[in-house]
Design a protein around this nucleic acid. Structure first.
Lengths: 114, 114
DNA sequence: TCCTTTTATCGTATGTTTACGATAAAAGTC
DNA sequence: GACTTTTATCGTAAACATACGATAAAAGGA
């Protein structure tokens, strides 16, 4: 790459793309769903519900943490994770602002456009 | 990978992850925004607004088309693209259904959880 | 102190993504 | 038919993602 992304794209575009990347693997969506149903849970619990190695699950958790969609805290020998609701809401606002541009469009492109 | 994704994850999880992957690059978000503002446009127009090679833009358009978020039609020597509103709405419904699980959560995780 | 449990990180293999330039293909114009 | 315009595809290099097993590290219990 010859230019940095932040020279090319707006902050909003970059932020939304980073949130989207966090959701771009079904394992990470499954993790979010589980966390939503449990409020919080430890890594081992997620390892049990997914047919993935513990190291792989840990890697996915790291990705979600990097995107700030979850928080993680050490709790004795365990690690306790939960959803960062605020960031999740921020992501949805970015999604919705792109969405509103699209939903507002006049055209009714049922089959193609041109 | 030892198991196929569709043996592990639900259809909804896979669909949402595929839509999210399509949004996981800022260039593709910029393309969607441009298409939303123009209703339709040809590939060359997008090449002009992004500092990327024509072949790279074409590749991003292909990704968006693969995710069905845009449609493309040949129009003489040109290619005309526009947003597939229906699929976009489907994506937002999947986002919202994950979202509603999270927003409904009782806990107020301002700083961590455990 | 040693053992167990739990999780993160390392090393690594394999596959995917992203970028580019070069080229091919499709269609209109001269 | 030759030339131009426009776009897709090919080839390729570099970077990133995803999976695993092995290992390290942190903390509690015997």
């Amino acid at each position: 790459m010859t230019k940095r992304k932040d020279e090319i794209y707006s902050d909003k575009e970059i932020n939304l793309s980073e949130y989207a990347k966090a959701l771009s693997h079904p394992a990470r969506i499954a993790i979010l769903k589980h966390l939503a149903s449990q409020d919080r849970c430890i890594c081992g619990e997620i390892v049990e519900i997914l047919p993935l190695a513990q190291s792989t699950v840990s890697q996915h958790l790291k990705e979600l943490k990097k995107a700030k969609l979850i928080t993680g805290e050490i709790d004795g020998p365990r690690s306790c994770y939960c959803i960062n609701k605020e960031k999740y809401i921020e992501m949805m606002e970015l999604m919705d602002s792109l969405s509103s541009l699209i939903v507002k469009m006049k055209s009714d492109n049922k089959k193609g456009c041109c």
